[in-house]
Amino acid sequence: MRQFIKRLYKDKVGLLGAIGILLVIFIAIFAPVIAPYSPDEMFTAHALEGPSGEFLLGTDEFGRDIFSRIIYGAQVSLQVGLIAVGIGASLGLIFGLIAGYFQGKTDQIIMRIMDVFFAFPDILLALTIVAVLGPSVVNTMVAIGIVFTPVFTRIVRGAVIGVKENEYITNAVAIGVSPFKIVFKHITPNIMAPFIVQITLALSGAILTEASLSFLGLGVQPPNPSWGGMLDASRTYMEFAPWTIIFPTVAIVLTIFCFNLLGDSLRDILDPKLNKE
């Protein structure tokens, strides 16, 4: 672990990503302290005002403080991102382990089902699921989780098949260790590297998908602040109140950028081939 942090520290770009993410997490946790106003509070007399001392990043069409909404929006983005990826990663891990370890028919069945899900474009699949379940934060997370399951399943299955060839697994099977124990005690720890990298990358994808769904009005419901929802609402005003669209965009871009930086850097650090040098 210490070695890992040391390596990350050496990789300045990855470090930048990590710091950025920590900052977003910090903002999300301390949102009530940082934000000057409640995100739903309407100052109708100040509707669509530009950035000023009173409203740092201006106000939206209801006179709500955009700065406060972006701060609280970080909570929504992270919450949706983490839980959605949590769902996708857990399901993917279970399916991937089963498919990879047992192979044969089980593998065929699981992977062909995953292929079906894989065949749909992400956003289309998420839209369909939300349309069936009805729009809400919870359903958004479930939808994104389901969308991400096939990716995790594939990655885990691939890694499991690789690890299974090792002699210590063959030995364990030979001395009669139960498959359950082999899978969780001997295989799982050894496939963590690609799994973790995928989680980081999936997080940025999940945040982006949430923003897209909210933009279409099918994700987080108003008046809860969501960066994507803010973009949707400000579309009509962007020509004469550009601050309503610029700042949420910057928030989305920077957050995704940080997650991608960290993800790519983790891939390099955790890649055993690059490790050996």
Binding site: A131, Q221, P223
Partner: peptide, 30 residues
Amino acid sequence: SSYPDMVDTAQLLQQQWKEIGVNAEIQQVE
């Protein structure tokens, strides 16, 4: 969700009704 004026109206109602203790949740649909 496709009519901004309807979504705006819903959000304003939510605020206004809060004053008499009515807690409204908004559901946007396609």
